[in-house]
Design a protein around this nucleic acid. Structure first.
Lengths: 186, 186
DNA sequence: CTATAATAGTTTCATCTGCAACTAATTTCA
DNA sequence: TGAAATTAGTTGCAGATGAAACTATTATAG
């Protein structure tokens, strides 16, 4: 390990946080004179996993505010509703696969949605382990109310991108997603 | 609200989950004959916020496995180390801004890192509220050990993309990030 | 100068999340 | 058959997360 160590360090300090709270010189009292020095070069703000995480969080926060403030829904609840709006009658396991959610997350989201009378469970006579899920009338109303807002947010987010850039974006996401999955599977 | 409602529904069911567990027909026992029907068209798997979240999670999981398994670090702990490796002596508030982390998250990550002897706190004589943070020798060793692995993961992730595609990716992320921030600020 | 406001950081609490263990039902195959 | 394995879904527990309250310190204003 430790391939190409010992390059330069701290070459470009990157933009200051804000005027007056510069790069910690004031805070650094150097209680340890022989304080060690990092020899590797690493810029978090340019690191793709970090950048993706930041972007995803910012976007999620924006769109989640709509679900939450106007409909009292969490992101996981919204995802379940989105799946059930499109695929009425599927089981929790199907929702799990379609929304890439954890088994437990689906189970709990469904329970909350049932409590809120947005989803109903239907027993399956053939296989009593399986429980068919579908939106109630209220659930459908919620779904129909949220969908245009979700689309609107997405459009505003993409507003600055050309059609070609949008296509490239989708392609890049697909490629990276497949690649990341492959790497995770070692 | 409810802009352009009443389009078609469920036009293309999208690929089946897997053979035998098709689209919930078996599970749907229709206990409610007049079960309502979703009139909006919404494909979660094509929804950008969802796609970004999925990608970010997959990527995070992959890279986080390295921190965790080989160095016992959480993602937040790694981020603090990454900042301190580059900007020794900064305060928790600086880390917060540089890593886009919550105040509380930084505070707790720093406490854990101090417990692990990877970070040390240095009191500031001028302003006793501020605490300068820097990596210990062990912290630097950890930093230097993780950085090449992080870079390697990033390179493997990007392996299939051309230089031009990488540039486009960065540009798209920047654009979307700025846009998302703008939207969040209403 | 004090009183008030602002700042840095920690703690509390309530929620979320994910793994593992668990129950219940069905399938497999010896 | 019928015991063992598989599948569906829930629950328990432990760690992570985030908002708000809190402590301590410094800056500002009257």
């Amino acid at each position: 390990m430790n391939d190409d160590a010992n390059r330069k360090r701290n070459a470009s300090p990157t933009a200051p946080i804000r005027p007056g709270t510069q790069r910690g010189h004031a805070a650094d009292t150097r209680s340890t004179p022989d304080a060690p020095i990092a020899v590797q070069d690493f810029a978090l703000e340019a690191f793709l996993p970090y950048r993706l995480s930041l972007l995803s969080n910012t976007v999620s926060e924006g769109i989640a505010a709509t679900y939450r403030d106007e409909h009292g829904l969490s992101v996981t609840e919204w995802r379940v509703i989105a799946i059930l709006g499109r695929f009425p009658g599927v089981t929790a396991t199907d929702v799990m696969a379609r929304a890439a959610m954890d088994k437990v997350a689906v189970s709990r989201a469904v329970s909350r949605l049932v409590d809120k009378s947005l989803v109903q469970r239907n027993e399956n006579a053939q296989d009593r382990r399986r429980v068919g899920l579908r939106l109630t009338r209220r659930g459908v109303r919620t779904f129909n109310a949220v969908v245009p807002k979700a689309h609107a947010y997405e459009q505003r987010l993409l507003a600055e991108l050309s059609a070609e850039e949008r296509a490239t974006l989708n392609h890049l996401i697909d490629t990276l997603q497949a690649r990341a999955r492959g790497l995770d599977a070692e």
